[in-house]
Design a protein around this nucleic acid. Structure first.
Length: 510
RNA sequence: GGCCCGUUGGUCAAUCGGUUAAGACGCCUCCCUUUCACGGAGGAAUGAGGGGUUCGAUUCCCCUACGGGCUACCA
């Protein structure tokens, strides 16, 4: 074990959006770094210019900040989050790729896309539907292994488009120690000669990730399981570049799967199943396509990272609600599961509900205030401070506060008359008429006085208080929900109460 | 097809050879509440199949089945 300070990186590609799997990868990296007093840095995978999406890099940073897991500055790239960008380090990669060629671990390949296609169809058999550029085929291709030295130099000086490919060794077992899976063994003869440097001079992920991880002094390289098959290439690269001693420890996280069916959770699934798959709303600047985010749907950042962390990891204690600090404290890579987990939106909402319940009114207030004002409801802080605790246990999402709180500030537009009308009669109507009169002369306006007045009057008229309580509630809030009616009446005030009863009577009598 | 990784209820999952196989979500019943929730008490529901190893396998090994990932000059 080395004693270097822990440094991990999150390396998203800025191709638009940041879905659940990505955020969880970032989160696990963050938790590991913080647990070991290390640093968590950002590296941007912008190798492929054609797919780079404007604004996506900032969007990623915004998401991480919202989640409370913003990257650290890092010593190698000052600035707010100082991400490494592959696009800015082009020369560096070429230098290392050429070094590999000189050392005999890589070679130039001049095959055109058409020639590659030809090779794939020529070698395609029933048993081998996708032939690769590998030990089996490379000697039949146009590269610096098959061409003479002069021919190669001529092509290079003529600027013939070419790539640099890794030369996989003959018969070699490539061993990789994964912190989650243990030792994984690959045989070199089944791994193909991956392109390291593309014809446009940009590196592929394989070269870039190794060069950058080395430059950034990354100690632990954690990523999704989809990278496991190419890990042997990376291990070899660390060796061939002469950096074996600095090779990070590896871990490959399980995938987050679709709730139904199977396969990786994708952007499409959100639309299909009605839940967000991105941390925050994302609008693709090119297509204009919009994908919904957890934030805008009313998730609390603490709940969001809590539910993500527990999707594939737990500390074995049965505890499910963790603050960020607790997650840092309890987290361990070794306890991350090997198998992928299906995403369950119902459980996700449960986490948020739990967080809303334990969240203080002060924390909730600004969010609720924003929600209400975006619906043209302007509520005083004083009123919010008393009504939020009254209603928060009914809210799974922050957005649920709108229906739960609205009636405290504005008269209900629609009343659930269907809940009242079947049992509505003249006797009840008479009760409310006299209740209005009684209330007008009520000297003090508090819960006890209203309740007492209501109940005594009901009894005097031979009605069970319960029979008139539901109509009263529907008049005040519009439906069959909310906290105690008399408390609501008290909070909205005498005038509003009288006004709503009046309107209720009209509607119930129609 | 090949390579790699997986497989405990519908879902998330505990168990690191011996348990009546936890707990949570969801679902159902009841209590509390003359609303909706919260809370409380219960219930139905799980070790893919087959071989080993062992006094004893959910747990270790092998095979099969199934699922997933990768198999691009994408990440």
């Amino acid at each position: 074990m080395s004693h270097k300070p822990v440094r991990v990186r999150f390396a998203p590609s800025p191709t638009g959006g940041l879905h659940l799997g990505g955020v969880r990868t970032a989160l696990y990296n963050y938790l590991f770094a913080k647990k070991h007093n290390g640093t968590f840095v950002l590296r941007i995978e912008d190798t492929d210019q054609t797919r780079y999406v404007q604004g996506a890099e900032q969007y990623i940073i915004d998401c991480l900040e919202w989640c409370g897991i913003a990257p650290d500055e890092g010593p190698h790239r000052p600035g707010k989050f100082g991400p490494y960008r592959q696009s800015e380090r082009k020369d560096m990669y070429r230098k290392f790729a050429e070094q590999l060629v000189r050392d005999g671990h890589a070679y130039y390949a001049f095959d055109t896309p058409e020639e590659l296609e030809k090779m794939r169809t020529a070698f395609k058999t029933e048993n081998n539907p996708s032939p690769q550029y590998s030990q089996a085929t490379r000697m039949k291709m146009c590269n610096s292994l098959t061409l003479s030295k002069e021919e190669v130099e001529k092509k290079l000086s003529d600027n013939v488009p070419h790539v640099i490919r890794i030369k996989m060794p003959d018969q070699q077992e490539i061993r990789l120690n994964d912190m989650i899976r243990g030792e994984v063994v690959f045989h070199s003869h089944v791994v193909d000669d991956k392109v390291l440097l593309k014809a446009d001079g940009m590196p592929t992920y394989h070269l870039a990730v190794v060069v950058d991880d080395h430059a950034m002094e990354i100690t632990h390289a954690f990523r999704g399981e989809e990278w496991l098959p190419s890990a042997p290439v990376h291990v070899l690269l660390w060796q061939y570049l002469g950096w074996s001693d600095d090779m990070p420890q590896w871990a490959h996280f399980p995938l987050i799967l679709k709730p139904d069916g199977q396969g990786k959770l994708s952007k499409r699934d959100g639309d299909r199943l009605g839940f967000p798959v991105f941390a925050m709303d994302w609008t693709d600047p090119q297509s204009g396509e919009r994908t919904n985010g957890f934030k805008e749907m009313g998730f609390l950042p603490d709940a969001f990272i809590n539910l993500l962390a527990l999707l594939g990891w737990n500390d074995g204690s049965g505890q499910e609600i963790f603050s960020k600090e607790e997650l840092v404290q309890h987290f361990s890579v070794e306890r991350i599961h090997k198998a992928g987990a299906k995403f369950d939106f119902e459980k996700a909402k449960w986490y948020n509900h739990e967080w809303i319940k334990i969240c203080s009114t002060d924390m909730l207030l600004p969010m609720v205030e924003d929600l209400l004002s975006s619906h043209q409801i302007h509520a005083s802080h004083k009123m919010l401070q008393t009504t939020i605790p009254l209603t928060k246990e009914r809210c799974h999402l922050i957005n649920d506060f709108l229906p739960q709180l609205k009636y405290f500030f504005v008269d209900p537009v629609e009343l659930d008359t269907a809940a009242v009308k079947p049992k509505w009669d003249e006797k009840k109507e008479a009760f409310f008429q006299s209740f209005v009169n009684e209330m007008k002369s009520l000297s003090s306006w508090n819960i006890e006085a209203i309740e007492q007045c209501f109940k005594e009057l009901a009894q005097a008229q031979g009605l069970k208080p319960g029979d008139v309580q539901l109509p009263f509630r529907v008049m005040l809030v519009g439906g069959k929900f909310g906290p105690a009616v008399f408390e609501i009446a008290q909070l909205i005030g005498k005038d509003a109460t009288l006004k709503r009863i009046d309107r209720g009577l009209q509607l119930f009598n129609q």
